[in-house]
């Protein structure tokens, strides 16, 4: 049974430790194949997740509670279909109660996975999954500052698909204006964005989207209880826009923006995503950089108007 995860903060290691296949939904083949009809205020990403969940006959989808759209998307999916779906409560705060809740959610997800045919993981099995994922994340974190954007995106996608490490990424000597992309998930269909930026005279020095370097944050401490390691590894290193307060996101960004001498930020935002859209002005103020908001709502890639905006943005930074 394949289990698709709609949030990077729901541990794939946990699913695999139960003997099931796990995959980040963003890179699934059937995800975002078409443009869904959207009513006003509907988040395009959430709608795609709902439609994907409804279409899966032999797979399950785990929704996060991280945003209203996905949380209520789960409601819609189970209301109008027999989708195999699970809603995982990813806390917004980092209080002791929230940590306890996160651990309890992992245990509850374990029950769900067993219902799907999974097996209770032994500490050794879970430890091995943690080791494997930890090594790949560490390798990707090391190479990320020097890797070409599309190659890194491909490597992260592979990690999200099956937990493995792609072939070694050659370091590149970037040319042009260093930019950061920050925001929601950047699926494979969106990767031409890298080419558009390159053609305009820039390069992506930091991929801070939901499918970029931020998801490499979970790290393990050496402790005897692997479930506690998993809980702390994710809970303490979760860097995302929905955290309250989301100062951790800005600390993470500022360190990397400065180190990589980024000169502009592209805010990648799905139509209807309030959480990222609301950060536009704060990004400008906190990072002291120009920010270009790019909205997407379909699988057709960048609209010509957005290509022009992107070109103008890079041109002004040259």
């Amino acid at each position: 049974m394949r289990v698709f995860l709609a949030s990077p903060w729901i541990p794939a290691e946990w699913v695999r430790a139960h003997g099931l296949e796990s995959e980040g939904i963003w890179f699934a083949e059937a995800f975002r194949r078409s443009t869904p009809p959207l009513s006003a205020g509907n988040c395009a990403f959430a709608e795609n997740v709902v439609q994907f969940a409804e279409s899966q006959a032999d797979a399950a989808v785990v929704f996060p509670t991280a945003c209203d759209q996905l949380r209520r998307g789960y409601d819609a999916a189970v209301f109008r279909s027999s989708a195999r779906a699970f809603l995982f409560n990813v806390p917004a705060t980092q209080t002791p109660a929230a940590r306890r809740l996160y651990r309890a959610e992992l245990e509850r997800l374990g029950n769900f996975l067993r219902q799907l045919g999974g097996t209770t993981p032994t500490p050794e099995r879970l430890g091995a999954e943690l080791d494997a994922a930890g090594q790949v994340r560490s390798a990707l974190r090391t190479i990320a500052p020097f890797a070409e954007a599309r190659s890194l995106a491909r490597a992260v996608a592979r990690f999200c698909r099956d937990g493995s490490l792609a072939e070694p990424l050659p370091p590149t000597i970037p040319k042009g204006v260093p930019l950061a992309i920050v925001g929601g998930p950047l699926s494979q269909a969106d990767w031409p964005l890298f080419d558009v930026i390159a053609a305009a005279g820039g390069f992506v020095a930091l991929n801070g989207t939901d499918t970029g370097e931020r998801i490499l944050c979970p790290t393990w401490e050496n402790r005897p209880d692997p479930l506690a390691v998993l809980v702390d590894g994710y809970f303490d290193h979760l860097v995302d826009v929905f955290r309250r307060p989301n100062t951790g996101l800005y600390a993470w960004l500022q360190e990397r923006l400065s180190a990589r001498q980024v000169r502009g930020i592209v805010l990648w935002c799905f139509t209807g995503c309030d959480l990222w859209r609301a950060e536009w002005q704060t990004l400008r103020e906190a990072c002291h950089l120009p920010v270009l908001l790019l909205e997407t709502d379909d699988a057709a890639g960048l609209a010509p108007r957005d290509v022009s905006r992107l070109q103008a943005f890079v041109e002004t930074l040259q």
Partner: peptide, 25 residues
């Protein structure tokens, strides 16, 4: 946590503007 995105986003913006917030889950 399980609150409207609008409100959560606006409250976070408020905090960025200098109004300290006590958040509870």
């Amino acid at each position: 946590g399980a609150v409207c995105d609008d409100f959560s986003a606006i409250a976070q913006r408020l905090e960025h503007l200098g109004h300290a917030i006590f958040w509870w889950e």
